[in-house]
Design a protein around this nucleic acid. Structure first.
Lengths: 196, 196
DNA sequence: TCGATACGATACGGTACAGTTTCGTAAGTA
DNA sequence: TACTTACGAAACTGTACCGTATCGTATCGA
């Protein structure tokens, strides 16, 4: 509407990015529940007043920062389904264990489950696109005959990604070595192979 | 040591159980982070003093109550692996969607991941025994030739249970009908069948 | 009956933290 | 220069909540 000409001192763009960076690093260190606005301000080298000039509440800030957390995620596509899947699971594990340190994902999972605004946006911007990409990858493989044509794609997506989430949640209780992903994929592909 | 004869008014056993019940119902309604000792006392119809006479802290109370939450879980065993697995997944779904309302499990998952005392005890008393039972069930089936003898049991447990956890976390975002579990099991068993 | 302990009710201390306000100053526009 | 908005620093308000203490009463054993 009003492309009003701003008067007065302009906002320092560095403040916003410093705050976002502080939120992410604190999220890793102290988790969602341990994150305070005072800590964010201090870590960002910024006053709380400046934060509240940009975001109406802590909730708003978190939604904004976390939703923009992981937008880029290239899909491996060598044309060789087995290797693509192993690579995809490895990337997923790396992604999860990167933010794992700060326990972002488990807490986001709880938010998703609780259907909070934060959870809704996280699912919408992070989880669902990834599921859709994997589904597309499998559909393509099925179309070119690499896997049996009666394979249920939805369930296949669950079977591939569910175990990764599970192992991540269990963490130290069920450590997974580098061979875990290929063992999983190879095991599944045995059942997914087209009838000869 | 001292089997000291108690003097004075004895503790009312009803208080402990009322408190435990209050914790569970509140956990379902407001979640772990929304649970306060005042609310527990009020819901249980008990004074806070009486709670602190029994548990040293909120943390102690939660660990005690939650760890004793789900101890009994019979394993289906009709001898027919496919049906047993479907039944087991259905029970798992029912279990998770029962406590789902209160979001206990996702929060416990975050605790397990965070390796807190609460999470450690939950994993020890709830998760790991169930994994062990399922692994036993699969080993038995493998021993009697119902599934291929080179099947990796550990990965098989992940592949069966991971998707259930995933769907539960996603909740409304990826609703699963009653056919989901059999589709999952049948899909997996295709790959697990022994070579003919 | 007496002493000890439990009970509910309730007040209180202490702390943590979200969000607001104030103040002196910096950086823009008219 | 005058005005407007942003900035950091820091004090402040309000609230939530854990854990403790006090009080009058109830229930046990001796």
């Amino acid at each position: 509407m009003t492309t009003s000409i701003r008067v007065g001192r302009p906002r320092d763009a560095g403040v916003s990015s410093a705050v976002a960076g502080a939120v992410i690093s604190l999220l890793r260190e102290v988790g969602l529940s341990g994150l305070t606005m005072d800590a964010v301000a201090s870590r960002a080298g910024v006053s709380k007043a400046s934060i509240y000039r940009r975001w109406a509440s802590k909730e708003d800030l978190l939604v904004d920062v976390i939703a923009n957390l992981a937008s880029e995620n290239p899909v491996p596509d060598t044309g060789h389904l087995r290797d693509d899947l192993v690579e995809l699971l490895h990337r997923m594990q790396a992604f999860l264990s990167d933010i794992e340190a700060g326990q972002i994902f488990p807490r986001m999972a709880a938010e998703v489950h609780a259907a909070s605004e934060l959870g809704r946006r996280y699912a919408e911007q992070v989880i669902l696109p990834r599921r859709a990409m994997l589904a597309g990858m499998l559909s393509e493989a099925r179309a070119r005959g690499a896997i049996r044509d009666d394979l249920d794609i939805d369930v296949a997506v669950d079977v591939l990604t569910g175990p990764v989430i599970l192992r991540m949640l269990l963490g130290r209780l069920a450590p997974s070595d580098s061979e875990w992903a290929p063992r999983l994929v190879d095991g599944l592909l045995q059942g997914w192979a087209p009838d000869r």
